[in-house]
Design a protein around this nucleic acid. Structure first.
Lengths: 197, 197
DNA sequence: CATGGATTAGACTGAGCAGTCTACCCGAGA
DNA sequence: TCTCGGGTAGACTGCTCAGTCTAATCCATG
């Protein structure tokens, strides 16, 4: 009910931006400057830099939703929608940056990074896997480990492009839509129930 | 012909270990201590920390070889050998650590990281793609973009496990051999020439 | 008007860091 | 024996950073 933007919000927003851009190396000085707030104000709202980081990380992963089980009968269409949405999110600047930052801080903050993964990609895998399990039970897909199948699909959706973005490799623009159709059709052929090898 | 281990070698080895473990944050103090060498000796052999890092990175990516085109007729067997070798290398502690370190330093050293990628994963993709192109020309595989196909196979071989290792997520042990057979067989079904969708 | 909680600017501490510099040491070759 | 290149130890500079502290200011409530 309170629309006021507090200094706390300003700090969280600024920290989010700077952490995504510079990783945990973003200095407290830079964060308070970017938030337009005094040094002491920061320490009024947060115990220290570490707890601010933790809060930013937890905030980032609240809004991870996988658009699935919308068309439970049209398998190909459902997977296509999922693939495009997941790809868009995973390869977005924020997605790539948070991947970079979290993997970089996995040693310093093991529990936090595990938590972020569980809340983010972990959730998505689980949902996709249970969706695929349903399709397998309905004999629309070859019987297999649904988690394995989910991981294969997600791996193909992201492909080498996350690595390219992480490493700053230029890539010629592609037809995203078409590519995702290739991937989903390939996946369906891979797990097609009729073709039995 | 000279078997002597120089101080330079000691420094490179120590730096490699510490950079892989702590990233670029590994301090010069720690490196010279680990090499058992004086501070000035370091600056006798390297201009500064940055050039040492560059040399370590370049060293790391000299020995990336993809065991391919050994069985050009037995497609499945060739791919299986490749898959196991690539997986082993990519998911090794050194492989995962260098991925973490390089992606973390992509902003600071863009050219170096690009170079490392080109010499490493880039090479592997190219080799695999040209191998697949041959198989496509011989009609052993569905006609498709060989680079796309190579990236799909590599993505599946690594799957979610690189992410798990980067993020420090525990994983129950699996049957590697069997898993790679699944992946290669799935890949072959995906790009099977007969089954035309 | 008065009080008190939040905010501000900025000084300060203590630590770690990269890189420089000095002074000393050792061992091989002239 | 002398010299000199490469080695060692360690002090030192200059910087950045996280976190603390002080003193002044603002503002809403009583």
């Amino acid at each position: 009910m309170n629309m006021m933007i507090t200094n706390r919000d300003r700090l969280l927003l600024a920290a989010r931006e700077l952490f995504l851009e510079h990783g945990y190396d973003a200095s407290v000085d830079a964060i308070i400057a970017h938030a337009g707030v005094a040094r002491q104000t920061f320490y009024n709202h947060f115990r220290n830099k570490e707890s601010l980081f933790a809060e930013v990380v937890r905030d980032c992963f609240l809004d991870v939703i996988a658009p699935l089980n919308e068309h439970p009968d049209e398998l190909r269409q459902s997977l296509l929608i999922f693939a495009q949405a997941y790809r868009q999110r995973a390869l977005s600047p924020a997605g790539v940056s948070s991947y970079r930052v979290l993997s970089g801080q996995a040693q310093r903050f093991p529990a936090l990074v595990r938590e972020a993964y569980t809340m983010g990609a972990g959730q998505i895998i689980e949902r996709l896997a249970s969706f695929l399990r349903m399709a397998m039970e309905e004999k629309k897909l070859l019987d297999a480990d649904p988690v394995f199948a989910a991981e294969m699909l997600m791996a193909m959706v992201v492909g080498q492009e996350r690595t390219h973005l992480l490493f700053g490799i230029q890539r010629k623009p592609e037809d995203e839509q078409r590519k995702m159709e290739y991937v989903v059709d390939g996946f369906l052929r891979m797990f097609a129930p009729q073709c039995g090898i």
